[in-house]
Each structure stands twice: as structure tokens, then as C-alpha cells.
Amino acid sequence: MAVCVAVIGKDNAPLYIGGIGIDTSTDNELSRQWLVHTALDALEERLVSSNTTTANTATNAARTDLRDLYLGLLYSTDTHKIYGYVTNTRIKLVLVTSSTSPSGSNIRDAEVRTALRRLHALYADAICNPFHLPGDQITSIKFDKQVKNLMLNNV
């Protein structure tokens, strides 16, 4: 389903980037990193806009609690679609799907949402490790394995 998954910290530095798929000259791990990186712009835009709307009206305060962490499609390119998700602690989860692959092109929003939620759960598990320093890069092999599985699962 996904070709790349990234966990990005509060300060917009990558904590984890994992990718699968066949690398070609135009579509490789690095190019996907560029996608993830630029997606931050769109992601932050969403966050800012959701912040201002909540700040505007007091009645929205209740809605903030129920705010969907899933931000939906951030942007797309000819070949990829980039989805965003942000945790309450402003950890950003980014998922990249390939529109050229048969499974990626036909993906439903709900599937992406579920995948990102699962990723969130995996992330939470990974940082629950008492030896993990919050803010450090995630080097857990188990996490990597699980994320790769998550990406493949829906292929």
C-alpha cells in the first residue's frame, strides 16, 4: 500500500523514515524523503488552520478534543500521494503511497486512516521503551519490522 512511512518529531526533524519498493532513478528512497519533507509544509498549514479555527470560537473547544488526528491527503504528485497524521504531542506521521502501483492508486481514504492509526499505535509502543529518549531517532528494529509489515500488509 504505502511506499514510505515517516515519523517526524515536534521540531520537524525526522525520527524515522522507512520505505519499501523498488528503487528506480526517479523513484527511490531519497526522492521519497523529499516528498516527506515537503509534505511538512502542507501538514503545518493544516495544523495552523485548524488552530486558528479552534481559537476563533469557544464552542470549538469541545471539538478540539475530538479532533481527528488524521489530516487526510496533504498533497499529491504525478506518482505519489502523501497523507498526514499528527499526534497530540505534535509528532507527525506521514505516509506516502505510489499512484503508479496498482494497489497504491486504488487506495481508499479509510484504509490510509487505519494504517496511520496503526502506525500511531506502533510509534507509541516504540517510545514506551524506557531506554528510548523522547526526541531521539527511532532505531528499534522491531518498530522497523512492524512498520515495514504495515506497509506491505495492504499491498
Partner: peptide
């Protein structure tokens, strides 16, 4: 900007 934000691979590229 890449260096500041800790995108080392992008910075390397």
C-alpha cells in the same frame, strides 16, 4: 534549512 531541521540525508544530497 535541511541541516537546521535535521534532515541529514537531504542535506548530504
Amino acid at each position: 534549512s535541511y541541516e537546521e531541521q535535521g534532515w541529514h540525508e537531504l542535506a548530504a544530497q
